[in-house]
């Protein structure tokens, strides 16, 4: 896959950081504003996809990236499972128990375990979408050889 012109590359490199930060904001404020792990994770994955589309596939080392994102996805899923089952140990014997204090509704540090679940599922969705896209790009590179 070939990259685009210099103007597109430069603008994309500047814009991707903004999109990435916006995705992180959507993830961490998921319990206060519209959004959450799914929307924010898709935005973060979109930032990476835009970078690869504009700069061509030589910009990143594809195989290594794919291994890393696949590992990240598995790790995030295991972290969410551990957090869900730690409700069994803390307090009552309920899976998905919200054992942390609820806090004052409307502040950033509120909602018990919900923000942590949002962060883990955000990492998971971003890594999954990036893995799918990288697999497609690697396949295209292989058949064009």
């Amino acid at each position: 896959m070939w990259g685009m012109s210099v103007i597109v590359k430069k603008i994309t490199q500047l814009m991707c950081a903004l999109i990435f930060v916006y995705g992180i904001y959507i993830i961490t404020h998921g319990h206060l504003t519209p959004g959450g792990g799914f929307a924010g994770g898709a935005l973060v994955a979109g930032a990476f996809i835009l970078l690869i589309l504009a700069n061509g596939s030589e910009y990143v080392r594809l195989k290594k990236q794919e291994e890393g994102s696949s590992m990240m996805e598995s790790a995030a899923l295991i972290a969410a499972l551990v957090l869900a089952s730690s409700g069994l140990i803390a307090g009552s014997m309920v899976f998905f128990n919200n054992f942390l204090p609820a806090g004052i509704p409307g502040q950033l540090a509120s909602g018990g375990v919900i923000p942590f679940f949002n962060i883990f599922i955000g990492i998971k969705v971003a890594a999954a979408l990036l893995t799918i896209f990288l697999a497609l790009v690697i396949y295209r590179e292989d058949i064009s050889k």
Binding site: G36, F38, V125, A128, I132, Y139
Partner: peptide, 24 residues
């Protein structure tokens, strides 16, 4: 619906993968 949309994206990617393999 929020969970269903993300599942729809995953199944779409899966279907497109099978289609592109059949084309090859």
């Amino acid at each position: 619906v929020l969970t269903a949309i993300v599942i729809a994206l995953a199944t779409n990617a899966m279907l497109l993968t099978i289609a592109i393999r059949l084309y090859k």
